[in-house]
Amino acid sequence: MSYKIQYNKQFENFKNILLNIKSIFSQNSQTIHLARNELKIIEIENISTVVKAFRVPNVLNQFVYAYLRKSKAYKAFHNATILHDLHVSTPEPIGYIEFFKFALLKESFFISKEFKYDFTIAHIRDEQPEYKKNVLEDFAEFTYYIHTKGVWHVDYSGGNILVKKDGDKYLFSLVDINRMKFRTISNYEGLENFNKLWFNEEDLTTIAKAYSKLASLDENRAIDEILMQDKKLKDKVLLKRKLRGVRN
C-alpha cells in the first residue's frame, strides 16, 4: 500500500505518527464525532490532537480523488494552512496522510491540535441563552473579518463554528474546512453566508445590524437580504424533504 503525506514543518516528529495513524486511531476510543467521518481526541507527543478519519470513498471517487481531484484530507490541511497565514482562527494543522491500494484512494486522515472551546454557534440557536446578543454581535464581527480576508466557508453551519469566551468577548474558530473558497466577497453578498445556520428571524436581524454597521451597508437592506437568503435555502431544503417523503 502506497501513501502521500504532508505535515507542518513545526511538527516534523509527527511523520512517523502519520505513517502509523491507522493503528493509533483504531486503538483509541475517545470518539467525539461519528457520522460520515470519525473524529477522535488523541494525546500524541504530549499534544492533545484531533484526528479526523475520512470515510473510504466509493469506487468511483477512489479513482477521482486519486487522479482528478484533491482529497478531503488534503483540502483540510491546505485550507487550514491558508487560514493560519491569513490570521483566521482554525485548529492548528499538523499533517495529513492518504493511503492507496491498487492506485486508488482508500483511507485518509487529517491531524490538528485540539482547540479548547466552550460551545458551538449551534448552542446559541438551539438554547437561546441570555447572553446570545453579545455572541451574535461578536460572531457578525468575526464573519465580516474573515470576509475582508476573502474567506468563504462553504459549510458555515452551526456545528462548524467553535466559540470560546475570552473575558467580555467571544472568539471563534472554524472547523470542517475542506470546502472553502478564497475570493473577493462584495457588499451584501456576505450576508448569504449565514443561510446555513438556521437562526430565527430575531437572531438574523441582530447579525444583519451588526454586520451592516461594520461593512457600511444600509441596515434595512441588509436585514432584507439576510432574511431572503435564509428563506431561500430553507424553502429549498424543505422542498427536498417533501419530495423524498413522496418518493418513500
Rank of each mutant, 00 (worst) to 15 (best):
R179V: 01
D218P: 08
N200P: 02
N195G: 07
F139I: 08
T184L: 13
E219T: 14
T184E: 14
Y144K: 06
V175A: 04
T205K: 13
K234S: 13
Y145E: 14
K209C: 09
S216M: 09
T205F: 02
L217H: 07
L204H: 11
W198Y: 14
R183L: 14
E202N: 12
V163G: 00
A222G: 01
G150V: 04
V135F: 06
K209N: 09
Y145A: 10
D168R: 11
Y188L: 13
K209S: 12
N160V: 02
D230A: 15
G158C: 00
L174I: 12
D166W: 06
L171T: 11
T206K: 01
G158L: 00
L197H: 06
D138C: 03
M180V: 08
A222N: 03
N160T: 07
Y211F: 14
D155K: 07
Y170A: 05
I223Q: 02
N195S: 12
L162Y: 06
N195K: 13
D166S: 15
Y156Q: 06
N193D: 10
N193L: 11
K164Y: 03
V151Q: 06
K209Q: 15
L174S: 02
R183A: 09
E219Q: 14
D203R: 06
Q229I: 01
Q229A: 13
D168C: 10
L233N: 08
K234L: 13
A140H: 07
L197E: 07
S157H: 11
K165T: 09
V154N: 10
V154L: 12
F194T: 06
H147G: 00
D176V: 01
V175E: 02
F199E: 04
L197F: 03
I185L: 00
K149W: 02
G190F: 00
N220I: 09
F182Y: 12
K231T: 13
K164C: 07
A210P: 01
D230K: 15
T206E: 11
G158P: 00
F199M: 14
I185E: 00
D138E: 06
K169I: 10
D155G: 05
I146K: 07
A215Y: 05
G190P: 03
K169P: 01
I146E: 05
Y144S: 15
E189T: 11
Y188D: 09
I177P: 04
I161D: 03
Y188I: 13
N200I: 04
N193G: 13
N134Y: 04
V237R: 13
K196P: 00
L233V: 07
S216H: 14
S173K: 02
K181S: 07
I177Q: 01
Q229E: 14
F199W: 10
E201N: 11
I177L: 04
G159N: 11
V175Y: 02
G167I: 05
E137T: 15
E225C: 12
V135I: 15
F199A: 08
E202Q: 12
K234G: 00
E192N: 12
D224G: 11
M180I: 03
L217Q: 03
H153W: 05
E225F: 09
K234Q: 13
K209R: 15
Y211H: 01
D168L: 12
N195P: 01
Y188P: 05
I223L: 05
I161A: 05
